[in-house]
Design a protein around this nucleic acid. Structure first.
Lengths: 340, 340
DNA sequence: TTGTAAGCGTTATCAA
DNA sequence: TTGATAACGCTTACAA
């Protein structure tokens, strides 16, 4: 019965007009306490909930945020989605999840879909949403004309677009530099994405060499093109480099799964970690604890970023002026796979 | 401009009534082809999209499915959510994600919230939604009176509740029996959930012993109470058992992360895998590839289940009679951590 | 085959 | 402090 109740039913039972019920519902101050109580009692008694669609029609909002993410089965993205959803719901916003895959066209399509649903904002999770070609990011700028767009882990300058990210450049530079300072020169950098954040990390690796007056060698920067679940593939990829004669005493990676693959490679070649080969991951995910020895990795403050992102979003939606960019610093978590 | 257009604007431009526009929009057959084209042209020209809220009000549906899941950062649940969302969107349904945590009260609250949003159905992901106390599951039965409820990995008999699951009993029994048949008697069973599915797995372990006329020993059935990310905790837990004098030649687990923790324990105690200790995981997740040697694990057909679940859901929503229960068989994927 | 008009259940604007 | 009543933009009888 309770689901079928309308504001008219409540108003009738309470002996007031629907306007008064609506005021009570929306916490308007212009209601006599006595009246408010009378109405609230009826509402509670019948467990009445206002119809979300009708409310949406009137307010042009259903308090819903779209979450766009390429692949929510990716360990890192999944965590991000989790944190964001939780924080949003704590602020009484619902989350519509939309996994887009990695194709730009599909991303555009998904965003369009969310816009047509009148979500109050869209959160784009992951650096892969910002590409090099300005033209390919235009759809984001367009969307930002109607609602605020929040980017996690990506950097993009446009009105009504808010970025929350980690300083991947510095984090990777620090990690690489720690190795260099400990006397290691030949460090393989293994990455898997050419996104904005991917480029920042790569630049950080390069910068560590330059800052120490050393030459950067292109051969030591290798991109693995496979999936984030293909750990065997990573291992084979590194093996190939090794077989081709490339020699390295350490591997810095842009993602933990690459580091796990590197560990597999080391095992297969009887290279002792960290004595013969040091390995550093990125994201500080659960994977760091799975391999043996456990992996040194960069904690890029995912939860902090998500909390901040939602704060910024809620602020923006409530009309408060918010910073367009929030940047966190990564932290190197040292474990058994390194000797630094 | 396009977002502001209403059905009235279109009808005016096309020189027809809003009813006709609505018919065109909804693919009604009672429209003259010529009229349809005229209207469609205007719609395309202005990029008009009907207002989702108004439509929702009229139809009492926004083609949205609620996805309830305890913790979408859990590797397994995240994958399930991913598959379900993807399949739903292929059928033009949106997904509202709601992470509930593991407390019954929060689950009830979340379900209530989704119902108040008038979702067309709710998918509950994970065996943890069904508890032993009938009373604690009542809220699901109640919800099913208004919309179909889909359970993934759980078994619950009630009208309008549909279950899609894997035969965890048999899968665990088979895995355990394979070890017993190879001559191993002392197998530790490590689990972490007393949910319906958790109990089925445990029963499968026990049944393997009984089927081979062997005695089941309670001491060999141990429940780890920590989080799914606490791999060190698992390792310490097994160590404690070992230090207390328990001896085993194999460990069967109810989740991959437990198997990874067991691997850590083996390493720390210089037990060779699989020679001294065989280990079997469950879920066949990416974790199986992270530890060394890679883990034998039960593939419980998650993707197949999700596809089937959505098929059943779409069928039900379109009024087709669908089976209340769909059961898949698990498959043991043999890798380096066993010798069977 | 098309148009008119009555809902759908809210919010918001005026008067009172 | 309250109540009528007009939006909101669509679907869907019912009429024509």
């Amino acid at each position: 019965m309770s689901n079928q109740m309308t504001i008219y039913d409540i108003s009738k039972k309470a002996g007031v007009s629907i306007a008064t019920v609506s005021r009570v519902l929306n916490g308007s101050s212009n209601v006599k306490p006595k009246t408010r109580k009378k109405v609230m009692d009826i509402i509670d008694q019948y467990g009445y909930k206002p119809n979300a669609f009708a409310r949406g029609l009137g307010l042009n909002s259903m308090k819903t945020i779209g979450i766009l993410c390429a692949d929510s089965s990716d360990l890192y993205l999944a965590k991000a989605v989790y944190f964001i959803e939780r924080n949003l719901r704590e602020n009484e916003y619902n989350s519509v999840l939309c996994c887009t895959g990695y194709e730009v066209e599909d991303k555009k399509e998904s965003l369009k879909l969310l816009l047509s649903q009148h979500v109050d904002s869209v959160v784009m999770v992951g650096s892969n949403f910002i590409l090099n070609e300005a033209e390919e990011n235009q759809y984001i700028k367009d969307a930002a004309e109607s609602i605020p767009i929040m980017l996690l882990n990506a950097d993009y300058d446009a009105p009504n677009v808010y970025c929350t990210l980690c300083d991947d450049f510095k984090a990777t530079q620090d990690a690489t530099e720690a190795l260099i300072k400990s006397g290691i020169d030949d460090i393989l950098y293994l990455y898997n994405s050419r996104s904005y954040s991917g480029q920042k990390k790569l630049a950080g690796y390069q910068s560590a060499y330059l800052a120490n007056d050393k030459v950067v060698n292109k051969d030591y920067q290798q991109c693995f093109e496979g999936s984030h679940e293909d750990i065997e593939g990573v291992s084979a990829f590194v093996q190939k480099l090794w077989d081709d004669g490339l020699r390295f005493k350490a591997i810095v990676t842009s993602e933990d799964f690459l580091a796990v693959g590197a560990t597999k490679f080391a095992k297969a070649n009887k290279l002792s970690i960290p004595k013969d080969l040091q390995i550093i991951g990125y994201n500080d995910s659960v994977l760091t604890l799975c391999s043996e020895p456990s992996l040194t990795s960069v904690n890029n403050r995912l939860e902090d970023m998500c909390i901040q992102l939602v704060k910024t979003l809620i602020g923006t939606l409530s009309g408060t002026e918010m910073p367009q960019k929030t940047i966190f610093s990564g932290e190197l978590i040292k474990r058994g796979s390194t000797d630094i």
